[in-house]
């Protein structure tokens, strides 16, 4: 019966390091091999670009010409240039407005409003509303932006038809408002879904006790609902801020125009670095963007930590 065992006793005795909690007998070396390809790809194409930005941002790298072949170290020149350039500040300001109105206010409020109003509905109306909002989120960005170009068209756009404002060039007269509404349309699904699940977790008994003492809808919202979903509101706000800050999709609608009126930071970087060819300067602005992202992400980590601790 022992013939089933093929390994000679000698080799079995040879000490082998095995971890106590290594159920599959992987061993550290093999585990390393398993993890390596993924980590290499992440390292090369995610981590390294971030670090590389620091170096790139301190050179006069250009896409073409002499500086493409032998870029020179220029220290903080790019940062000085960016920070003294009014168009950078303009872009930052536009970004702030964009994030504030389309993300923090628009998506959050409308997302909450939708979640709130479909909460007690069942059946096809609920599916239809949720489906439409979700569909806007899911369809590819280039399709979404085309649909809005159609909708807002100057001569025969549906919006002008509905509002009786034939001939209004929304994208030229009100470019920022247009991309804000466009971005609300694209992104509200996330807030809606997040708040839907948050609202369904609010204990009905709390709402009912508020109703029993005669609280109005508004008072219920303020005294019961909001305190219960405070964490979700914060999470939602931070994630939405991060994503809205980083979105490039408005470029597909207005391409930053007219006259840079919708040149939010992501578009500004693109215009500077790729068509503009100033990779060094673009990298310097990218680094600023990365740092802002870092701050938002760290705030998010802090918030979610605090929440899990409680």
């Amino acid at each position: 019966m022992t013939t089933t065992v093929t390994t000679p006793a000698g080799s079995a005795i040879a000490p082998r390091r095995r971890r106590a909690d290594d159920v599959a007998g992987l061993g550290k070396a093999r585990a390393g091999i398993f993890v390596a390809p993924a980590l290499i790809i992440i390292g090369l194409f995610l981590l390294f670009p971030a670090v590389w930005t620091i170096w790139l941002g301190s050179t006069d790298y250009r896409l073409t010409g002499l500086q493409a072949a032998s870029p020179e170290f220029v220290g903080l020149d790019n940062y000085v240039e960016a920070l003294t350039d009014p168009s950078f500040w303009n872009s930052l300001w536009l970004t702030l407005i964009f994030v504030l109105f389309s993300g923090i206010i628009g998506q959050t409020l409308i997302g909450f409003g939708l979640a709130w109003s479909v909460r007690n509905i069942h059946g096809w109306t609920k599916s239809l509303i949720e489906g439409l909002v979700l569909a806007a989120w899911v369809i590819p960005a280039s399709v979404a932006s085309f649909l809005w170009l159609v909708l807002l068209d100057r001569r025969s756009g549906t919006v002008n038809g509905l509002l009786g404002t034939q001939g209004t060039a929304w994208l030229i007269d009100h470019p920022m408002e247009s991309i804000i509404i466009f971005n609300i349309w694209v992104g509200t699904a996330f807030s809606m879904q997040l708040f839907s699940s948050a609202l369904s977790a609010v204990p009905p008994s709390q709402i009912e006790s508020a109703k029993m003492v005669g609280a109005s809808g508004w008072q219920q919202l303020r005294d019961v609902i909001v305190p219960n979903i405070k964490g979700h509101i914060l999470t939602n706000t931070l994630l939405i801020t991060l994503w809205t800050f980083n979105t490039f999709t408005p470029y597909l609608v207005t391409a930053g125009g007219p006259n840079g009126k919708t040149e939010i930071l992501s578009v500004y970087i693109y215009e500077t670095a790729i068509p503009g060819g100033q990779l060094g300067l673009g990298a310097a602005i990218s680094l600023i963007m990365l740092l802002i992202n870092l701050v938002i992400a760290l705030a998010y980590v802090r918030v979610s930590r605090g929440r899990t601790k409680r």
């Binding site: 065992v5 093929t6 390994t7 006793a9 079995a12 005795i13 040879a14 000490p15 082998r16 007998g25």
Partner: peptide, 10 residues
């Protein structure tokens, strides 16, 4: 056989 350090499969 001393199997103190042997793999389970053997």
């Amino acid at each position: 056989r001393d199997v103190t350090n042997a793999e389970p499969g053997v």
